[in-house]
Amino acid sequence: MAVVVMKKICKTFTLKDMSVKALDNVDLSVEEGEMLAITGASGSGKTTLLNIAGLLDRQDSGELELFGKTVDFSKDSANARIRNKRIGFVFQDYSLMAGENAVFNVMLPLYFSKIPLRKMKKAALAALDKVGFPRSHLKNKVKFLSGGQKQRVAIARALVNDPDLILADEPTGALDSESSKMVMDILKQLNRDGRTVIVITHDPLVAGECAREVRLSDGRVVQSRDV
């Protein structure tokens, strides 16, 4: 079954007086359990594609199917539930609450479920263990952690609700090679566990770790190949 299906997706941004066509009739299908890399130059529409797939933005035209159902963007709460339960996000800038500790950041998605605080904490610790986050740093505020540790926290947060789909936008972009390898190893492990993973990257080495690469240029899919 296809987890993500995009049909003729178009998206244009207007910044000041300038219109930028970020996505131009994009067709894409991502199968369950697949690990896909989306590559392309800056401004080619990679992040826009990921934002739409993650229900963070909506297309101007075209159709999006997630988990076998057509997405209705007017249903804000229902889409929020999908983001919360079935999708995990990992970003280059981590998108963490810098003033809070790792445990709280990982617990965040669970606040929108009816789970007691004690169980939330337990689940967060389990997720942090899974990504190899050191226990000695649990109470440290995120802003005092290294880039690699922050990304581990972000990945732990992404998987704490056991999602079906992981969307990672340049997850290694701000990391050194060792940390990058560690992040990719975790993402590959998550994929081996059965999760669908979509990674946006500039890095050919990162793309090479995925099973398939889709290349975007000027908002269009110009290449799709198995790695």
């Binding site: 963070l56 804000d76 709460s77 889409n79 929020a80 539930r81 983001r83 919360n84 339960k85 996000f89 998108s95 963490l96 609450m97 965040l108 998605p109 929108f112 947060r157 609700n161």
Partner: peptide, 15 residues
Amino acid sequence: KTIAVIELIGCSGRM
């Protein structure tokens, strides 16, 4: 920005 992070992980726009 903080709220944007929270929306990212599953909070609805209204909330």
